[in-house]
């Protein structure tokens, strides 16, 4: 390998190392990692309750929200927690920002 190639490779490696290690590595491999608590069934149910409160006070509920809410609850109960949580979160976002709904079906009135 030529000198220029070695310099280039070294520069690339250094830049990669700087990029990757730009932040301090704060956890040692021996210590157990901290747990994310928003991937649990309990949180899923908490989200479902929050969504229910939002839909309960709303005059019109977008069809997409109802579909996501049902699907999210079902998936959580079936053990697909992350998928269920994601749908419930989407439903909450759509309740707060109806204009983000890309597939607005007929709204249901309560």
């Amino acid at each position: 390998m030529t000198l220029s190639a070695r310099i280039t490779a070294a520069a690339m490696l250094i830049s990669c190392m700087v990029a990757v290690s730009g932040a301090q590595s704060g956890s040692s491999p021996d210590s157990p990692p901290e747990q994310i608590t928003t991937d649990t069934l309990a949180y899923c149910r908490e989200l479902a309750v929050r969504l229910e409160k939002m839909t309960g006070s709303a005059a019109l509920i977008p069809a997409t929200v109802l579909r996501l809410s049902t699907a999210g609850r079902d998936m959580c109960e079936q053990g697909l927690t992350r998928g269920g949580i994601m749908r419930l979160r989407k439903a909450i976002v759509l309740m707060m920002h109806p204009d983000m709904d890309t597939d607005p079906g007929p709204a249901s009135s309560r």
Partner: peptide, 10 residues
Amino acid sequence: VEYEIRVERG
């Protein structure tokens, strides 16, 4: 300070 922390997600 920016830290890179290992976490466990599901």
